[in-house]
Write a protein that binds this DNA or RNA. Sequence first.
DNA 1: TATTGTCATAGTTTTTTCTTATGATAATGT
DNA 2: ACATTATCATAAGAAAAAACTATGACAATA
Lengths: 312, 312
Amino acid sequence: MTIVQLEYIMAVDEKRSFTKAAEICHVTQPTLSMQIQKLEDELGIVIFDRYKSPLEPTKVGKIIISKARKIIREFNGIKEYLTNEKGKLSGQFRIGIIPTLAPYLVPLFLPDFVKQHPDSKLIIEELQTETIIDYLQKDRIDLGIAVTPLEEKELKEIPIFNEPIYGYVSTDHPLFKKERLSESELENAKLWLLNQGHCFRNQALKICNQNQLDTQNMEFIYESGSIETLKNMVNISSGITLIPALAAFSNINDFNMVKKFEAPEPLREVSFIVNKGYLKDNLIKELRKSIIEKIPEEYTIKYKNGRVIHWR
Amino acid sequence: MTIVQLEYIMAVDEKRSFTKAAEICHVTQPTLSMQIQKLEDELGIVIFDRYKSPLEPTKVGKIIISKARKIIREFNGIKEYLTNEKGKLSGQFRIGIIPTLAPYLVPLFLPDFVKQHPDSKLIIEELQTETIIDYLQKDRIDLGIAVTPLEEKELKEIPIFNEPIYGYVSTDHPLFKKERLSESELENAKLWLLNQGHCFRNQALKICNQNQLDTQNMEFIYESGSIETLKNMVNISSGITLIPALAAFSNINDFNMVKKFEAPEPLREVSFIVNKGYLKDNLIKELRKSIIEKIPEEYTIKYKNGRVIHWR
DNA sequence: TATTGTCATAGTTTTTTCTTATGATAATGT
DNA sequence: ACATTATCATAAGAAAAAACTATGACAATA
């Protein structure tokens, strides 16, 4: 006994004809005939009285059909439930975003998103990557936004855009006069960096081919917790640092201090992170749409000359 | 999505192990793994979290499993319902029996049967074969007992026993001195016969190779409605007739008038007649048991030298 | 009486399911 | 710490099931 067989008898019951039933089931008439016969054999009853014209279900047949109808309804109910579950964009969504992204990204998409989806409520937390991973696994957040790849097999990464990484150079710094920075020039540079735990710290070090900071030759050390602090440090110290693109133009007064790298430009891949098998595809789709709408188009298209920084 | 897949996830949920679940499903572990994967793909969700140990269903998984459990329960419910329906031997059973059998057969099995099945109530009617067929099709009776084959394709025949046919010869009749009758001797005999409509009339004619009665040469015509009348007619008229075995010994005083035929002995096949797909297998089984218990054993075993009379 | 419409049967092809063999990874015991 | 075992995934081939095309029997209809 299979679900398909039950569907067949329902079709025959509806159409009162094997031929027509086969049509609506998108199979040939012999296929349907044989399956119904098999079912009848297995159950040891006759479901349809072929001698009547138009054919009709037997007494038992009617009972079986009504039972079948119920089963099919519930069977399809599973898929319906899931599409519903995935589709609905209401309720709470707990989102964790890394600190080097959140202050610049959230203000971009959040206002419009809440306007478009009044039934949904986003709860956004600034979390470092490790915490995002932990919280996802513990179901304390639904979605993370972080830099990938993470290589966590329990999680699924859905790339959103590639964020270029720029230099931020004090007007007093020797590199300030250059149009474009090259990565090699930074290899032994004294960089202002975020403190441990921020993934952007590792990304930056990677770009400069430095595995760890050469603290020996530096005049003083100040590891900041935010990119804004970093920029301020550069400003007052004639220094240099690296900043992600979205952070670069948060203050319209320092356009000139932002220096692009020569191609291939270093990039970081920003992705949604979800548990594998996460239901709310729709949340992801909508959120993605909102974000992509607001960020520069060139971030989303595949960078021809970009170099994605794998940092883990 | 198939029922089997749902059964698999239920087994995994119960055992919390693919391997053990495969065992109780009587398949190998890869089979089960693949089917569950297929289901997960189709539904677009992950049902089991394989990273946990022991593995456990995801949040959605739990919901799907509970839905699956319900479906499986109802699915099996169909078969349960049917075995129940077929198995139960209670309620009314309407039975039609041909008149040449009923007076001799019913008293044989009925008393014991009702004793053994106090919850069932048999409603027995004497009906001629054509009426039995008609009533079965109109669902006015559940079961017929008649002589087969009928060659009615809507009906199913279940042979019970082969009833020999004997001659019943008046002591004054020339054939009375014979030990055994031969069919050829009867070819032009003047037989007492049942009137039209009784199948036994045709059976008797067939035995004598007579297609219709040669009324010309007969002294008088009296077509009887019952075998008892027939026997009486023979007694008072020095005549001869044919009677089925069960009727032969209903009166212990005329043993000597009953003459067997030479082998191959003419027989008539007595069968249950039911609608194809009739549910109550159990009724049939029990009834059959009751009947076979009471009739001579040699009727039930295949007659080596018997000649079954097809009469229709 | 020929025609059409309906379902059954036969023989093949295609698809699906299952199996065996093997591999990767995590848990467990020495 | 290292070998062992347990557990699930993957791959490739075998077996089973379901589908198709072609055809046949039969009844209803023109």
